[in-house]
Write a protein that binds this DNA or RNA. Structure first.
Lengths: 151, 151
DNA sequence: CATGATTAGATTGTGTCCAATGTAAACTCA
DNA sequence: TGAGTTTACATTGGACACAATCTAATCATG
């Protein structure tokens, strides 16, 4: 394809989709950081709270399944959320291996404050709700392909 | 929009574009990891090499400008690339504050091996080159918007 | 020219992310 | 039932990413 000694344009940074995703990820977290800082959360911690606001309680494994994170990441993260008073962790009675993660009153209350977060950030990403949905579909398809490839 | 006590669907994980980008970023690095491991590189290290294969030498600041990374990230990363024998770091004669990063013969040689990397990974992302370009455009626009928003 | 401000990198500390390993509980099935 | 396997989570260690601070060199301005 490329001749010897010439620039291989597939190796050019700007041509790489993956670099755009990498930059996009960091750019978006830059948008979230100041907003979430007011809630005392990091972005991954916010994701865990989103999951628990949808369904509570959940085991550590269930939270991990939702976010595709393992205990190596979740254990210390959940410990910090517990220290912050937002969640409680208790060994499940039915299976002493599992740990149930549940929201505290403070953790539930934080949801009210968080209600404004998506609008504050999402507005930067798309002009219209339709465009937002459309982009989301494309990303979703792409993610499915990536997940399938790593199988 | 949402009534009190009802689920706020903007807080649903699956509705959030940012979560897709977050997952996409990690999914794509999962694809790169085994391929780059054969070159002895992590993904961020690979990015630095891409930048240097395009233009060599560069100061630490120039590399950082290209990747949007600061010295807090780059200093230890470049130290590891130096230990691996891929780059050299020398104080610039013209300005003793700057450090010039240059490829070693080994670092230049690695490029041949890396030539197959984009195809190995990019194939998972899009079926056709046209689709790839189209997706890239969309990401590029979105990134521009995000960068503009964080100003 | 001397002093204060700015700049380039390095360092330190915190929080992910992931691989590898450890530990205790639960399961399997001979 | 009981020994071996599997499962759930915790821990450790390496590598980013980012904020904050530090140091040394350069610049700006009087």
């Amino acid at each position: 394809m490329t001749r010897r000694g010439r620039v291989d344009e597939t190796l050019l940074l700007d041509n790489q989709l993956c670099f755009l995703v990498y930059r996009l990820h960091r750019g978006i977290t830059d948008l979230y950081r100041p907003v979430l800082a007011e809630l005392g959360l990091t972005y991954p911690q916010y994701l865990v709270m989103l999951v628990l606001w949808e369904s509570d309680p959940l085991t550590v494994g269930q939270v991990g399944g939702r976010l595709h994170l393992d205990s190596g990441t979740l254990s210390p993260l959940l410990k910090r959320l517990e220290t912050a008073g937002l969640i409680a962790r208790t060994r499940a009675a039915s299976d002493e291996r599992s740990v149930e993660v549940s929201l505290t009153a403070q953790g539930r209350a934080l949801r009210e404050q968080a209600a404004t977060v998506p609008a504050a950030v999402g507005g930067c990403l798309s002009a219209t709700a339709d465009e937002y949905r459309q982009t989301r579909e494309l990303f979703s398809d792409l993610l499915a392909r990536v997940d399938a490839a790593s199988r």
